Simulated assay, not measured.
Amino acid sequence: TEEYPKANANVRYLHRRIWMRIWVGMPSRDIDKWSRCHVFSPACIATLHHLMYTVLWKKGENTVMVIDTHVHVFPDNIAKKAGAKLQAVAQIPCHTDLTEADTRIKLKEWGIDLGVVLPIATKPSQQRSINNWAKTVQHGGLISFGSIHPDAEDALSELDTIKEYGLYGVKLHPDYQCFFPDDEKYFPLYEKMAALGLPVAFHTGYDPVSPDVIYAPPERIRALARAIPALKVIGAHLGGHMQYDEVEKYIVGENIYIDISMAPLTCRQEQFERIIKNHGVDKVLFASDCPWTTPGMELQMLRKASLSPEETELILAGNAIKLLNYNV
């Protein structure tokens, strides 16, 4: 409140407007317009979006499962340090403390039934310790992917460990791991993932950790998916963070799953809707990139899209259940 002196009064006023919207039927766009014209901290805005859209969603007829397929959690002993470092790079607020316990609490508060943890092995030496930890988080509303470092000497055999541990896929982050995903030297890894039935999730598009080199643009993700059609590829951030014109050119219509994480911050509503409809709603996954955005933001964007209830349910959970072979 010292940094944002009007915040307290604004929060109280907006709180009243939210409840008027819920009980009287005030258009939610009035709240959006009002909130943009007043002074809020980024964390305050995120909290208000959660209050408004999670409550509005629950008040409606929607009772389907909601699966957030893009969640970040760290072991307790490094969560604080990792969070501070990542916030310094991304320059956006962190909405959990990145621990298991806090993430479980927040996801429940936000109306998320299941969170899919996506850990990243940024060094070859981290593979086994990360996968050992990932195995332990699979309870109480969380399941997890594993990770390999594609340049690790034992990356191929580590995929067997990921499968043996019952993890649901493999997360790769080309910008942190410094590799181009369509490089043919990595094809044996992808072929084994396909053989083991392990989906692979890529960060795609821009990332502030590598502002000058985009390692996984939409064109490279398409090249990989076409080269190994049996591989189940997930392109985070609509298939190309902040490269949505390229997404429409290279990703839309391809045999690639895309998640909607971060879209509310960087994608126009009309382009978002065009991408998911033209791509096919059966290949779209609900996701938030928690803790960097909060699920209420993506719920808002999805709710604004002119989709049928059946299409919305596929995105919220149905597609993920099928892709991950998750036993509800």
Rank of each mutant, 00 (worst) to 15 (best):
G239S: 01
K249D: 02
M65I: 13
K135I: 07
K58R: 12
K59C: 01
M297A: 04
D154R: 11
D245G: 15
F40I: 02
T96Y: 09
A225Y: 07
T266W: 10
I162F: 04
P150N: 08
D154N: 15
V64C: 15
R222K: 13
N10Y: 08
C290M: 15
N77Q: 05
R128H: 13
Q300G: 01
V233H: 01
N10F: 08
K59T: 00
V200M: 03
P309H: 09
K85I: 08
I228L: 00
P42Q: 14
S41Y: 00
N255G: 03
K80L: 10
F40L: 14
G253V: 04
I162D: 04
E298K: 10
I275C: 08
G166A: 15
P309T: 12
M297S: 01
N319I: 02
P93C: 10
H72V: 00
L196M: 11
Q127C: 11
R12E: 10
R226L: 04
N327Q: 14
A84V: 05
F202P: 02
P199S: 01
K185P: 09
Y168G: 02
H38T: 02
Y326V: 12
T122R: 05
L323I: 08
S35F: 02
N8T: 13
D259E: 07
E158R: 05
D102V: 14
G318S: 05
P174F: 01
T293N: 14
G60K: 00
I148G: 03
D182Y: 05
V71S: 00
E254W: 11
G166I: 13
Y165N: 12
K33A: 14
S147E: 08
P124C: 07
K192N: 14
K58S: 10
D154C: 06
M65Q: 12
W110L: 11
P124W: 05
E273I: 09
D175P: 03
I221W: 07
D97F: 03
P42F: 13
R36Y: 06
V247N: 11
P229T: 05
H49G: 07
Q300E: 12
K85G: 08
L51V: 10
D154S: 00
A263E: 07
V200I: 10
V55P: 02
V247M: 11
H237T: 00
V137M: 11
S129H: 09
K283S: 09
A287F: 06
R21L: 08
A227C: 04
V66Q: 04
A46C: 04
E219A: 11
T103D: 03
D113K: 14
A84N: 09
L307M: 13
L156R: 02
P119N: 08
I275W: 15
S41N: 06
G146C: 11
R274C: 07
Y4D: 09
V284M: 09
M65Y: 01
T96S: 10
V66A: 12
K135Y: 06
V284K: 13
N131I: 10
K283A: 06
